[in-house]
Structure formats: structure tokens, C-alpha cells
Design a protein around this nucleic acid. Structure first.
Length: 833
DNA sequence: AGCACGCCGACT
DNA sequence: GTCGGCGTGCTC
């Protein structure tokens, strides 16, 4: 028999290996195996099929390669369930990547063993007369201190440029030996536990032992055994002949309870009554705390809850549109509880940054040890344990997790909640698979005939569109929890103020005034500055005009090297005009203000006031993020300056003023989704202002006060915003009407990429005609030494996906036939964010 | 992805 | 004349 093995590599298809005799009966599909690959590598693969070699009667179908044998079977039961593998296949097909890449993303690295070359010194006698160069001597010295070292470690401890050729020579001389070794990264944490040498001791036998121990000399032993029996309920188990009644007893607790030295326990083990054994424990201990009862829902929440359940009788997917602070989480908790009563599992997805201790604690209180939390910042060993727990007989019933938790081995998923459904972080950008967790969730749920609930205060245009089309059910929750008023939003025209020279840096007098007042009242302030406006935008300093693409209606991006304006969608290019076409002034400037600069200005404007910055730079670690928030909550800091991070579902009690420093940088992001993102961000950040019994204040600074989007934000009119957006999307053929695939090509030579891009665009147009846009230079036009070009494929509704995939593959192969393009790298981004 | 093989320029 | 650069192709 032969096994098809999937490897965590960006290669299409599985590899076939022979199954050694000792594995034939035990090896199953879904188990991990160790396989030799290439000349020296050893990888962890997953068995996807066990089958007859090839058609014996058909000589044309014999393998044209030498089949190697599996090295080792790593599991005794499958770690990949059929539904999970089916999902991998779907992702690979839909997002145009290899199944191996999906495997790489799905499995925690502790489950993916990889070999490493270890260098060991040979016996000295074998090479004493070899003449060594100083560099070689150096390596020998290093190896004398440690028996064996990886190549990487040797490289790190020398000053040599490349250690590999030196090692190669040493190998030839017989000085060193090299071998491939597989590290077992994951070592389960254990604790010493105590048990009877045989669980089948009869009650009578136990009583007999106790009687013998009941002497003055052995009273400590008697006491210890008695305590053990009590803790483990061993006598009860023996009486009922039921091993499952046995409770685990740790050595530590037993000795603590008994208050005797471990010599006593040792004596009992020597007598062959008790034994000590290592017991695997989960690193993250779940509180066994009694689960608290659910909070009852208020009227609005109850209505929403009932509506969702009503929707689920007819539809599998429901969108919950609930304003900020409307208490969506409690509704989720009630739905989860309901599902659990039906014996089904629930996955609760949250975007990375929103998965805070606040929400974890709330859910732990209700679901106790039935809840598992899966976060990418957890140590890998914990993620491996989580995986194994999900495979066990008692898997977590509720998983609270980030994007990648869709890959866990669920057995019966009844409901997936995608909270903050509109969040861009649900989409994986780099590396492949570039999947969108929300969309994958819909597929995953369908395998279990489960339901999906999408929740957001600012739903994505795509989801709302599906709700409008009737594909999803829609439930709206318009009332804020505890009737907290929505903040009042004041729009400040900073273009006009700049004209009149009334701005102080990035601050309008209105904002400064509100900040001053808030600080005097000992309240806190949040300042929002989206630093993501990385791509330089050109703007007329006089009238605020920003160049936009006539075709795509996105702002054009300035490329310094060529002094041109480029549309990142269709590739439209124009020379930077000398004067503003709107007002004829010549003061065209590049715009860019980061959080760092804002903080600096705040410190000069408000000397002595404690500030904190919350952005990607200041929150490299999970603890840093939580510390900054904790300090702000404890009011150690008064002004919090941040990027979109401050918009994520956090409620502070003392924030009265929120300042949006420049709405335009958000709105002018060169992307068809810029207005959607701007609306979401600003509505979310505005929601941070205000508290019980008091209306918050938001100062929104912009140069486009008349832009309809501003009005939609001020009035919170989601429907108006939605109507305007879909109209535009339909007109310009963007999602949700058309689906997009970005095609990227990379090469180290600029001329070659440009030529290849031209050629590819031409070939694509032969197949797809007007659906192809580009080629175009992406915002990040170069990664390390590789130049990148981008093309867009717009796919109309109803087009056959497999057919398009086929065509793409064919077109690529056609291009690759040209010798000069052989080292061209191509990758796809399906449904880009 | 990694790794080996193989073909052309800067050194002994 | 050799060492070493990285371009090309393969991995069951």
C-alpha cells in the first residue's frame, strides 16, 4: 500500500510514499508522518490518502520516480478530521494557493516537525594529522565545547561570512559528521501523580493493606494511603469496578494534605502499593469556577435575540447590525448557551486586537472550563494543547479565537459568531493562504449544517448587500445599552482655519478648547490619527483639492521616483500638475501626519499632561497593549493618541472628548473601500466618547465638511452611507457586484517585470477582455530585491470560478514558456481587502 | 520552500 | 588555473 502525503510547502499536490510493514495496520488518513524529502530534508506531512500504488495492469500509469518509504508515524489517531481537510481543500482552491500552504497556516508549528542539520565532531585520532585553516580550527574549538550544534548556531558563533563551505571541507577531511535531526519541539508539561499500582485492587484487598498498615510504626503510611483513597475515590471505584470514577491525585497535593514527608510515599511505592507517574497537564489551567448564571437580556436585546432565532429557522446566516454599546456580547452569550444545551460546539471569532482580557473574562465567568481561548500571541505549546484538547473526547464546547482558530479540529459546530464582522484583520494578507476568516466561516459552518451570526455596528458593504439581497437574514439593534446617548459630533473645517492661519499644528481652536475643558474637569481625551496613510497623497494647500482617478474614483498616489500620480487600481498615470486644477494655486503639498508627531505637539500644547500612544510601534507585545490600556483605564494617562487600535470595542468610563484629527487622510486612502473604512473607523472611534448619563463630544476635523460621507457619520445614517456606496460600486464594477482577484508578479529585474506585466496583461485580456485592469505599480512596489507589478481581474457575478482558475493557470503557463520569465514569481490575492 | 547542480567572473 | 557568485530545476 502507498500513502499520499501533504507537506507544508508551496507545492501543488501530495507526494506518494511506501508504507513500511509495521505501519500498515495502524496508519490512517489524517495522521502525521515523518518523510524524507529531497536529498536530506525530513518533513512532517499529513496522510491524505492510503491506496493501492498505481494501476498494476496499466503500464503507462507507473510512477516515473523512485518511491521512498515513510520514516515514522507520529500519531496514534488522526489529528486532522475529514471536515478540516475538506476546508483546506476549499481554501486552496478558492484562494488560489497550494494545500501545503494551507497546512502551514493551519497547524500550530509544534505539530510540524522539521529536520535540522546537526554537526558533530569525530574522534580526534581519525583526523589528528589533518592541516586546518584558522577558520576551521575555530569551528573545531566551538564544537569541542558542545557535542553537536546546528549549522545556524555555528554560523552565529563565528565571524566567518559563510560557514557552510568550511563545514563541507571539514566533512571531507573526516573531522566532523553531519546528521539530520528532528527536534520534537512540543514537550507536554507534566506533573507527578500518584495512583494504586493496580486500579483493580478489590475493596477487600485495600482493606487488608490498610489493616496491615494500621500499626504505630506505619501510621504515617496508613494516613497517607487513607488520604489517597479519599482524594481519588478509589474505594468507591473498586466497589463499582469502575476505573472512570478515579480522580487524579497529584503528589504535591497528596503530601500537602497528609502533612508527611515524601519518604512515607516512597516507602509505599517500594512496597508496591502506590506508584508515581508523570501526568500531562494543560499549561493554561481552566478555572473550575462555578459558571455564573447568564445576565438577563433587556427588552431590546431580547427582541434581537428572538429575531435571530427566528431568522435561523429559515436562513443559515444572519447579520446583526447593532449600534456601539448595544450589548451584542450578551446576546451572543445567550445564543452560545442555547447551542451548548443542544450539545453543539460554538466558535466565537474576534479580530486580533479586540480579543482582550475583558471579553475573555466575561466568557470565562459564564462558560468556565468549557471555553478555550485561541490567540496568536499565546505560546505555541498552548496552541498545540488546544488542538489536542479539541481532538479529545472532551473538546472545548466554546472557542473564543482569532482568524486562525477556524482551523481547529471541530467535531460538531452548531454556530459561528463573527464579531466585528467588518474588520479588515479577518483577511490574511501575507503569506498565502490569503483567506478571509469570515467567508471561510460560512463554508466551515455549512459542513456541519451550522449557523453563522455576523455582528457589527458598522457592517461591511458586502455583508449588508447580502442581507439586502435576502441571502442573509438581518436583525437590527438600535438602542444603546443602559440608554447611553450617542455622542454629538462637531465638524470643524480645518481647510478654512488653515487659510485664516488659526490652526496650531494639527489642532483647531475648537478641539484645543474642548480638550482643555475636559482636562480641567479631570476627564480623559482620545485623539485618533490614522497613520496608515502611508502612501503619499498630494493635496492643494490652498483649496484642499486631491487628485482622483477619473475611472476608479480613488485618490491618486504620488510616486517620487518618476514624479507621477498613479491610480493603484487601473494603473492610470498622469504627471503631477504644476498648479491646482481647482484653484490655480501652485502650493501642492504631500500630506502626512503620524501619531508620533501628534504626541509631540500635544506635549508642547499641554505641558505636564500624561499622554500615551497606542499604535503598532508601541504595542509590539501583548502585554504592552494591555499595559497602555490599563494605565488609561486607571487614569494614569489623560490623553490617548492612537491609530485605529483605539477604535476597537473598548469602553472607558471617563472619556468625554474624542478628536479625529484629520478625517481626510482616512477618506483619501487610495482604495475603493476608502469611504467604507473611513465610515467604520470614525463611527467606531466616536463610540468611545461619552458615558452613563452624559453625552460625549466628538470633534471631527476635515477639509471636506461638505462631503456627504461626513454628514452620514454625523447623523449615524448607515443606510444613506450604504446606498451611496453600493451605487458607486455598481457603477465602477467593484464588490459586492463584482469579485476581485489581484494578480501579482515579482522579479528581481525591473525591466523583466515590466515586460512580463505587459505581456501577461495582454494575454489576460485575450481571455478576460475588459475585466482586466493594469498592470500597475503597487504601493509597496518592491520587496527586498524583487520588483512587483499588479493586475486586477474583475469577475462578474455568476462567472464560473473553476473555469476562471483554469484560464488563469493556463495563461500563466503560457507566459512562463518564455525563457526570460522562468524565475518570475506569481501569486494571487482573491477577494482583497 | 530548500537544496544541489552547474555555469561564468575575481582571485592565488 | 580555482573559488564562489547565484540562476535553474527538482523534490514522492
Amino acid at each position: 500500500m502507498f500513502a499520499d502525503v501533504l507537506l507544508p510547502l508551496p507545492l501543488v499536490g501530495a507526494f506518494t510514499y511506501g508504507i513500511p510493514a509495521e505501519m500498515t495496520s495502524s496508519l490512517k488518513v489524517g495522521m502525521r508522518v515523518l518523510v524524507p524529502f529531497g536529498k536530506k530534508k525530513v518533513y512532517t506531512g499529513i496522510v491524505t490518502d492510503i491506496r493501492e500504488p498505481f494501476d498494476k495492469n496499466d503500464t503507462t500509469r507507473q510512477p516515473d520516480f523512485v518511491v521512498k518509504e515513510l520514516l515514522e508515524q507520529l500519531d496514534t489517531s488522526p489529528i486532522l478530521l475529514p471536515e478540516q481537510y475538506r476546508l483546506w481543500q476549499w481554501i486552496a482552491a478558492y484562494y488560489l494557493c497550494s494545500e501545503g500552504e494551507v497546512m502551514k497556516a493551519a497547524l500550530p508549528s509544534g505539530l510540524k516537525l522539521e529536520s535540522e542539520s546537526l554537526v558533530t565532531l569525530q574522534e580526534e585520532e581519525a583526523w589528528e594529522d589533518a592541516e586546518l585553516t584558522p577558520g576551521e580550527q575555530n569551528i573545531v574549538e566551538i564544537l569541542r565545547t558542545c557535542k553537536s550544534l546546528s549549522i545556524a548556531k555555528i554560523q552565529a558563533s563565528t565571524t566567518l561570512k559563510s560557514v557552510v563551505p568550511v563545514l563541507k571541507h571539514l566533512l571531507e577531511l573526516g573531522v566532523v559528521m553531519m546528521q539530520e535531526e528532528v527536534r520534537r519541539k512540543f514537550v507536554p508539561k507534566t506533573e507527578m501523580h500518584v495512583r494504586l499500582t493496580s486500579p483493580h485492587f478489590t475493596v477487600a484487598a485495600i482493606e487488608e493493606i490498610l489493616r496491615q498498615l494500621n500499626t504505630k510504626r506505619t501510621q504515617n503510611q496508613y494516613h497517607l494511603l487513607e488520604t489517597y483513597l479519599l482524594l481519588s475515590s478509589a474505594t468507591a471505584a473498586a466497589r463499582l469496578e469502575n476505573e472512570h470514577l478515579l480522580q487524579e491525585v497529584s503528589k504535591k497535593t497528596l503530601l500537602e494534605k497528609t502533612e508527611v514527608s515524601d519518604a512515607v510515599l516512597k516507602r509505599l511505592t517500594q512496597k508496591g502499593i502506590l506508584e508515581i507517574y508523570p501526568y500531562e497537564i494543560a499549561r493554561r489551567r481552566q478555572e473550575d469556577a462555578a459558571c455564573l448564571p447568564l445576565h438577563s437580556l433587556n427588552e431590546a436585546q431580547q427582541t434581537a435575540y428572538d429575531s435571530i432565532k427566528q431568522v435561523f429557522t429559515q436562513k443559515d446566516i444572519c447579520l446583526l447590525h447593532g449600534v456601539t454599546s448595544s450589548g451584542k456580547t450578551e446576546i451572543y452569550i445567550h445564543l452560545i448557551d442555547e447551542m451548548m444545551k443542544q450539545g453543539k460546539q460554538v466558535l466565537y471569532l474576534l479580530p486580533e486586537i479586540a480579543l482582550t482580557t475583558q471579553i475573555t473574562e466575561r466568557l470565562t465567568k459564564v462558560f468556565g472550563n468549557k471555553l478555550g481561548v485561541y490567540h496568536s500571541k499565546f505560546p505555541d505549546a498552548e496552541r498545540v494543547e488546544m488542538w489536542q484538547k479539541m481532538l479529545s473526547d472532551s473538546p472545548y464546547r466554546v472557542v473564543l479565537g482569532v482568524r486562525s482558530s477556524i482551523f481547529l479540529p471541530y467535531k460538531d459546530l452548531g454556530l459561528i459568531i463573527v464579531d466585528e464582522e467588518h474588520e479588515a484583520t479577518y483577511k490574511q494578507q501575507e503569506p498565502a493562504p490569503r483567506y478571509k476568516a469570515g467567508d471561510v466561516a460560512l463554508i466551515l459552518a455549512s459542513y456541519f449544517k451550522g449557523k453563522v451570526l455576523l455582528g457589527s455596528a458598522t457592517p461591511s458593504i458586502d455583508s449588508y448587500y447580502h442581507a439586502m439581497q435576502g441571502n442573509f437574514g438581518l436583525v437590527e439593534l438600535t438602542q444603546r445599552y443602559q440608554n447611553i446617548e450617542l455622542p454629538s459630533i462637531e465638524v470643524v473645517d480645518i481647510g478654512d482655519l488653515q487659510h485664516r492661519r488659526m490652526m496650531r499644528g494639527a489642532f483647531s481652536p475648537t478641539l484645543l478648547d474642548e480638550m482643555q475643558q475636559a482636562l480641567e474637569r479631570k476627564e480623559q481625551v482620545i485623539l485618533f490619527q490614522n497613520r496608515r496613510g502611508f502612501a503619499p497623497v498630494v493635496e492643494c494647500h490652498t483649496c484642499g483639492w486631491v487628485p482622483r482617478c477619473k475611472q476608479c474614483d480613488v485618490s491618486l498616489t504620488y510616486h517620487k521616483e518618476r514624479n507621477v500620480l498613479v491610480c493603484h487600481y487601473c494603473g492610470y498615470t498622469e504627471v503631477l500638475p504644476q498648479k491646482c486644477p481647482a484653484c490655480e494655486e501652485t502650493d501642492l503639498r504631500h500630506k502626512g501626519y503620524g501619531t508620533e508627531k501628534i504626541e509631540e505637539e500635544v506635549q508642547t500644547l499641554f505641558p505636564g499632561v500624561a499622554t500615551a500612544r497606542l499604535d503598532l510601534d508601541t504595542t509590539k507585545s501583548r502585554t504592552a497593549y494591555e499595559r497602555i490600556l490599563a494605565d488609561f483605564t486607571a487614569r494614569k494617562t489623560s490623553i490617548l493618541i492612537g491609530t485605529q487600535m483605539v477604535t476597537k470595542g473598548l469602553d472607558f468610563d471617563h472619556v468625554h472628548v474624542v478628536g479625529i484629527l484629520n478625517a481626510d487622510t482616512i477618506m483619501n486612502y487610495p482604495d475603493f473601500r476608502s469611504y467604507e473604512r473611513a465610515y467604520q473607523m470614525m463611527v467606531q472611534v466616536a463610540g468611545r466618547a461619552g458615558r452613563k448619563g452624559e453625552q460625549g463630544k466628538v470633534i471631527l476635523q476635515t477639509k471636506m465638511p461638505d462631503n456627504p460621507l461626513i454628514d452620514q457619520i454625523v447623523t449615524g445614517d448607515y443606510k444613506a452611507f450604504y446606498r451611496a456606496q453600493v451605487q458607486e460600486r455598481e457603477l465602477f464594477h467593484y464588490p459586492p457586484y463584482y469579485r476581485l482577484v489581484y494578480i501579482y508578479i515579482k522579479h528581481k529585474d525591473v525591466r523583466t517585470v515590466d515586460l512580463a506585466a505587459q505581456r501577461l496583461a495582454q494575454l489576460l485580456r485575450q481571455a478576460f477582455g475588459e475585466r482586466v485592469l493594469g498592470p500597475d505599480i503597487p504601493a509597496v512596489s518592491r520587496i527586498q530585491t524583487l520588483f512587483i507589478r499588479k493586475m486586477i481581474l474583475k469577475i462578474e457575478p455568476g462567472a464560473s470560478r473553476p473555469k476562471i482558475k483554469e484560464w488563469l493557470r493556463y495563461t500563466m503557463s503560457l507566459l512562463m514558456q518564455d525563457k526570460q520569465f522562468t524565475s518570475l514569481v506569481c501569486y494571487y490575492d482573491v477577494d482583497p481587502q
